[in-house]
Amino acid sequence: MIKLNKISKVYRTKTIETTALNEIDLHIPKGEFLSIMGPSGCGKSTLLNIMGLLDEPSDGSILVSGQSIKNYASRETSKFRNQKLGFIFQSFHLIPDLSVLDNVELPLLYRNVSSKDRKQMASAALESVGLANRKSHFPSQLSGGQKQRVAIARAIVGNPEIILADEPTGNLDSVMGNEVMDILTKLNTQNGTTIVMVTHDESMAKKTHRLVRLYDGSQVA
């Protein structure tokens, strides 16, 4: 499903060169729930961004869903990201000026789905995360756990093959974190969605199929 071949990422300024990722080789088969752990600054989020085609590697190649990505700024890559990938972020990234339903509809907006179908699909996604009664609320009216469930609904509304979650439980207490984790596990087991999750929490990582550890940009386990 995702194949990283000697992926390196180097950030360069006039005076400093920082290696964020160093020749990472990783293969994530379809339906796997993989977690990535490591200390802060080890390159976890960078790796996730590269898998999500949000960032371009300095070196190496990447194959996602059987497709090799060449031009990261092209319309095709945007379309690919829209149809194959779903994102969940630690800080939710909900648009404060849009209602819960409108936030969940967002990915469909770039897919030419009719307004009626968008509403139906977004409502179904919200129902699957247990927030059907919060459609017209605004993000500021929700708790942290509810916000993250909205973000999950937004990630799954377009039925992506892969979900990339960057510390989805990082801003939540353990009860809410477990709720979110249960939803992700259910998505993986019931829908066969491939999930790659970055986490700091060992207990959450243990609930996944496989754990990859990074240290200073290199894969150590």
Partner: peptide, 16 residues
């Protein structure tokens, strides 16, 4: 800025 990044992550092209 974060909204712009989010929209790009969700499939918006720079022209969008």
């Amino acid at each position: 800025r974060s909204e712009i990044g989010l929209r790009q992550a969700l499939g918006a092209h720079s022209i969008d």
